[in-house]
Structures are given as structure tokens and as C-alpha cells.
Design a protein around this nucleic acid. Structure first.
Length: 270
DNA sequence: CGCTGACCCTGACGGC
DNA sequence: TGCCGTCAGGGTCAGC
């Protein structure tokens, strides 16, 4: 469900209710996520003030004085701000009750998400070795070009590799490759600098536009404020296999690359 | 080191 | 109505 724009949308939605408030209580109903939620986490977090909320890749970071809570939404997770008396539903695994009466509720049917803790110097091991943020100045076509030399994996797999650049998930990888006119299955190492410049620009553009629309709601994504994202209407290829290419009208083709559904136009993408 | 596929889990959907 | 296979926006890890 959440790619970078959806995580960013979530962050912006919940931030005003959390930053500079004290945590009253952390309630873990089901700590059996991607990795177990640390047993001592409720004790570690209770009573502390939330200093800041940040995003790194698709991780949300809750900064406290004594450490950082690291949250990932996986494929199906979402975070909502609700009233404390809101009835607990299926897959509502974690609640964070804050000063001022609001409640941050984590729901995740598939439980591919995680909630971890890091304190002390340096970064949590999950964050070490991540590539640059796609919307930062340190990400550009030159970086993609240099990192791809000699690599035979499909360019789509390459741009979805978090060690190369973070935050490019399946939807937006498909969209950016279409926008750049690059065929997803082409070997990453055989693509020119010019084309990588265009691809990097497209990645930035599609992510920026998706954030402006509040993300993409395919089934049930909602931001922290409970509203869906409206970017779905602007998707050019993702989820449109067999339908007409928006540019040339030819039928869009679907293949699988790295176990991910991949949709492209055989005439517009080379 | 790079690449591929299995795997974690629930739910929705289509075919029979 | 139910059963079965397939697929889904994420990422890690083992094995070659």
C-alpha cells in the first residue's frame, strides 16, 4: 500500500498531533509484526516527549530524547489519528496515546510492517546503507548511471533497490519508466547517461505530483487525517494492462520482473 | 559482489 | 455457497 508519497502523506497528516506532546501510553495489542515489537517499548516510551517526526525512505521516525521509534507500514499498514474512545477494530495492533487526548492507531492486516527502537550512537542497522532520498539534490541521473555500470539486472529492479535510491516502489517505478520512455526489462548497465537523467527527473516528478495529490489510494489507503489519495486517476500504466496506452493507444503489456507486476508500452518504451 | 526466488501474512477476487 | 489458486502498494535473507 504505502510507497513514499503515501508515507509522506501520513507523516504530514499525523505530525501536528504528535510533535512536542508527551506520550501517555503505548499499547501493543499484537506485537507479532515483521519483527517482534520490543517487549520493553511501552516502558521506554511512556512519559517522554515527541521531539520530532521524520521520514527516511519509507520509515517513519519518532524522535524522543532517549532514542528513536522506527515504524514501517509494510504493504498494508496505515496510521490514523482517532479519538481515544474509538472502538478497536481487527488488525489494530498498536495505539500511541498522547497528551491532549488524541490517539495514533496502527493498523496492518498483513503485518509486514514493523515497530522497532534504536538508541545510542549511529543509525539502526535497517537504515545503514540506504541510498539517497529521491527528492534530494544528491539523487540524479549521474548517480544512476554510475551505480548501474556493469549491472545486468532489469532497470526496473535496479531503481527499486533501496541501496541505489530509496522510496521508489512498484507503482511509481512503472510510472517513471513510462514517463522516461525506458523499457523496464532493459539491463541497467546498458542505459545511457542521457536516459538516466530523464529517468531521474521522471522519478522526482511522479513522486512530487503524487505527494501533492495525497498519495495513491488503490484499495484502502488513507492519510493520517482519514482521507484517501487522489493520484490513482493520474496513473498512466500501473494497473492498466491490456488497456490503451495514454500516448499511442496501443494495448499496454504486462510482464513480471523480480516477482513484481510490470506494465509498459511496447511502442513508447524502448 | 550481484542476482534470483522463497518467504513473511491476510484478504480480495475469479473460476469451477 | 464454498473451495482453490493467484495476486497485492514492502522488504530481508539464503543460496548460487
Amino acid at each position: 500500500m504505502p510507497e513514499l508519497p503515501e508515507v509522506e502523506t501520513t507523516l504530514r497528516g499525523i505530525e501536528p498531533y504528535l510533535v512536542n506532546r508527551k506520550i501517555k501510553r503505548l499499547i501493543v495489542r499484537n506485537g507479532s509484526l515483521r519483527w517482534p515489537v520490543p517487549e520493553q517499548l511501552p516502558a521506554l516510551m511512556a512519559g517522554q516527549r515527541i521531539l520530532a517526526l521524520e521520514r527516511r525512505a519509507k520509515y517513519l521516525l519518532l524522535k524522543l530524547a532517549s532514542g528513536t521509534a522506527i515504524l514501517h507500514l509494510g504493504m498494508s499498514g496505515n496510521l490514523r489519528i482517532v479519538e481515544p474512545q474509538t472502538p478497536v477494530g481487527k488488525h489494530d495492533h498498536v495505539d500511541l496515546l498522547v497528551q491532549g487526548g488524541k490517539l495514533l492507531r496502527f493498523n496492518d492486516p498483513r503485518r509486514f510492517g514493523c515497530l522497532l527502537w534504536h538508541s545510542g550512537p549511529g543509525q539502526h542497522s535497517l537504515l545503514v546503507g540506504l541510498g539517497p532520498e529521491p527528492l534530494s539534490a544528491s539523487f540524479d541521473g549521474e548517480l544512476l548511471y554510475q551505480r548501474s555500470r556493469g549491472r545486468k539486472a532489469p532497470v526496473k529492479t535496479f531503481i527499486m533497490d533501496n541501496k541505489v535510491v530509496v522510496g521508489v516502489g512498484n507503482i511509481y517505478a512503472n510510472e517513471a519508466l513510462f514517463g522516461a520512455g525506458v523499457r523496464p526489462a532493459r539491463a541497467a548497465g546498458q542505459i545511457s547517461l542521457d536516459r538516466y537523467r530523464r529517468l531521474a527527473d521522471e522519478i522526482k516528478d511522479v513522486l512530487t505530483r503524487a505527494i501533492a495529490q495525497g498519495g495513491t489510494t488503490l484499495k484502502d489507503f488513507v492519510g493520517g487525517d482519514g482521507k484517501p489519495g487522489y493520484f490513482k486517476q493520474q496513473l498512466q500504466v500501473y494497473g492498466r494492462a491490456g488497456l490503451a496506452c495514454p500516448v499511442c493507444q496501443r494495448s499496454l503489456t504486462e510482464v513480471r520482473l523480480g516477482q513484481r507486476s510490470t506494465v509498459f508500452c511496447k511502442s513508447c518504451q524502448r
